[in-house]
Amino acid sequence: MNFNFLTPVPDTVLAHNQLLSPLSLGQKIKIHSEQYGLPDLDDVKIVILGVLENRNDVNYIGEDFNLNEIRKSFYTLYPGSWSSSIADIGDIQKGDTVEDTYFALKETLTILIENKIIPVIIGGSQDLSYVNYRAYDSLTPMVNIVNVDKSFDLGDSSKPIKNTSFVGKIILDEPYNLFNYAIIGYQTYFNSQEEIDLMERLYFEPYRLGEISNDLTLVEPVMRDANIVTVDLGVLKASEVSQKQKVSPNGLDGKEICTVARYAGISNKVSSFGIYEYKPSQDDDITSMLISQMIWYFIEGVNCRVKDDDFSNDDNHQKFITLAESHELIFYKSTKTGRWWIEIPFLANVNNKLKKHTLLPCTHQDYLDACNDKIPERWYKAYQKNSV
């Protein structure tokens, strides 16, 4: 694997790491250093990757930043009972232009994902999620994205890309590889009614902050179907982060965002995870520690993955058939984990995006609703999207 664009973890961080307990994460993971170079990644399952690019932030005023405090915080944590090998492969620096950074990131991510290594990306502005999506162009025909964010980030896609418009670019730029876009924790007053209506017309999946806070388990089936999970730190409530990071008095709290990160890790399908909009400040300890704990919980989730979505063997699942609003709905329940799926039928007479029967993650409540003649909303949206 050839990673030409990576720079090593700074020596100041490595010097701090030498003082830590031999049982800490910093002493247990492989680290890209100036002295020893890039570590061997043959047996590595998860890598930490910094991207020091923020020039397409709408509020960019020329400031640079680094991820030193996040690394210091992360290295001080202790690993769980994990079998996956982890590496910190350093940073992608700002290129001469933003497009240079995009190119370097896309090339790096494509290599990692192709080799079944899960990148945990720490940024920079969230427009980097567009590059993350483009890294899948040659890898998979249809991509599902989950964005944990207060805003949809649809923006004006006719203008150059910004961190507030990257989703619009994902939807409208060729090649069209996006199948589903879900947003977790959006706050209505940060989004225009036109954008909310557009999300509905496109049969995407918006989940309001209140909805998620009332029942965090709603996140699990959405994450189970995602390839890319991207987190905007602006989704956090102001009391959870340092002064410069504060965006809104309302948002997810530390416990909720760590649960969301763990759900992302548990998903067998998630192959890249990004945390963006980091803005370091002098009182930064709390933000860097929260980001570190989010990464910890994501890694914990990856180590708890269970392969329970092989439905070729009838012993692996139970099958349930019910009728709701004249539709025959077929549900499957894993005998290993108790997780549920619902079948989206193949429509032979339309331009079917999936070309086959496909199984959509759902909840036990969706099955109970179907038994009471109510079609699950996730099924309806996927069915409609598949029919377009």
Results as ranks from 00 to 15, higher is better:
Lys116Ile: 03
Pro141Cys: 04
Lys116His: 14
Ile117Lys: 03
Val131Ala: 02
Tyr181Met: 02
Ile121Ser: 08
Asn147Pro: 05
Glu107Gln: 14
Met142Gln: 15
Leu105Ile: 09
Phe166Arg: 03
Met142Ser: 14
Phe190Cys: 04
Tyr133His: 10
Val120Glu: 10
Val146Ile: 07
Leu178Phe: 03
Leu112Tyr: 04
Gln126Pro: 00
Ile170Met: 14
Pro175Arg: 08
Tyr136Gln: 05
Lys159Phe: 05
Val146Trp: 03
Ala182Pro: 02
Ile117Trp: 09
Pro119Trp: 07
Asn147Leu: 07
Asp137Thr: 15
Gly123Thr: 09
Glu114Arg: 14
Asn177Gly: 03
Ile118Trp: 00
Lys162Asp: 12
Lys106Gln: 14
Leu105Trp: 06
Leu128Val: 12
Asp127Val: 05
Thr110Ile: 05
Thr108Ser: 13
Ser157Lys: 12
Ile184Ala: 04
Val120Pro: 08
Ile117Met: 06
Lys150Ser: 13
Phe166Leu: 05
Tyr176Cys: 02
Tyr133Trp: 04
Lys106Asn: 09
Ala104Val: 01
Glu114Trp: 00
Ile113Asp: 12
Pro141His: 12
Leu178Thr: 07
Ser129His: 07
Glu107Thr: 14
Asn180Arg: 10
Asn132Ile: 15
Gly155Gln: 05
Gly168Val: 04
Leu154Ala: 10
Gly185Ser: 00
Met142Lys: 15
Thr108Leu: 11
Ile161Gln: 01
Leu178Gly: 06
Lys159Ile: 11
Gly123Met: 02
Ile117Ser: 01
Pro160Met: 06
Asp127Trp: 02
Val131Pro: 01
Ile171Phe: 15
Val167Met: 14
Tyr189Lys: 15
Asn163Phe: 08
Glu174Asp: 11
Asn115Leu: 00
Pro141Glu: 12
Ile171Val: 15
Ile183Ser: 09
Val146Gly: 02
Phe179Leu: 15
Ile117Phe: 05
Ala182Met: 01
Ile113Pro: 06
Phe190Glu: 08
Val167Ile: 15
Leu128Lys: 06
Met142Pro: 01
Tyr130Arg: 13
Gly124Ser: 06
Leu128Phe: 02
Tyr130Cys: 03
Ile171Arg: 07
Leu154Pro: 02
Tyr133Met: 03
Pro141Met: 06
Ile161Lys: 05
